[in-house]
Write a protein that binds this DNA or RNA. Structure first.
Lengths: 105, 105
DNA sequence: ACTACAATTCGAAACATGTCGAATTATAGT
DNA sequence: ACTATAATTCGACATGTTTCGAATTGTAGT
């Protein structure tokens, strides 16, 4: 347990997911709730459907879908189908984990 | 100023630098001071010469050099020649900036 | 000057990533 | 059943990344 290099691997996968500017933009929208037409409330996980998330990013739907899948695989973004749409959000715990990675003990 | 997408770009470059497991290991050593034969003192930026940093990572010196250069270009690691060696360290400010990226306002 | 050690640059090979358009699946409403 | 909208999968192509060994540069000591 507490396998050092396994944890390192998890984090490097997270950072890989955030290393692409488009993916980081998607993640930031979910994280900051500063996206078009959204009220800001940091206590509740913000939800977007896939299409709205990609708004203004100028990427093809297939590319958007691919990026969200990567974020989901890295464990950074949750996804759930809701009718015709698929809703996406970030769990606050994930933010805490990432934030504390950079805080020396 | 306070150009949103420029800041996003800086961060995606940082995360790209940390997306490689070997580079993340190098960065972690400088950050955590948990490396072989080092006393732990979080108040002072820890310094390693390039060779010692790569200890146990099983990568060629040329690869090690390349990775450190990437970390340096991303602005995450500082480097300074000191005689035969080149010393590397992480500025505590960088850690603070990265950590607070994940903290919603 | 010569030697030894530390680190970097260069070129090449194998592999991974970002992107698209076309085709497909999922769901809801008519 | 049919149609429209949302999202995904697939195959392809161009570009980037990781890694190495060989050659090179920088520095200190003999």
């Amino acid at each position: 347990m507490s396998n050092y290099s396994a944890m390192q691997n998890t984090f490097s996968n997270s950072f890989k997911a955030l290393s692409n500017p488009n993916r980081l933009a998607l993640f930031s929208r979910l994280m900051n709730c500063c996206a078009p037409g959204t009220k800001c409330d940091a206590t509740i996980a913000v939800r977007f459907c896939v299409g709205d998330l990609g708004e203004g990013l100028n990427i093809a739907p297939s590319t958007l879908s691919h990026h969200l899948k990567e974020l989901n695989r890295a464990g950074l973004v949750e996804m759930e189908r809701k009718g015709k749409n698929v809703e996406c959000w970030v769990e606050p715990e994930k933010l805490k984990a990432l934030s504390s990675f950079f805080q020396p003990d």
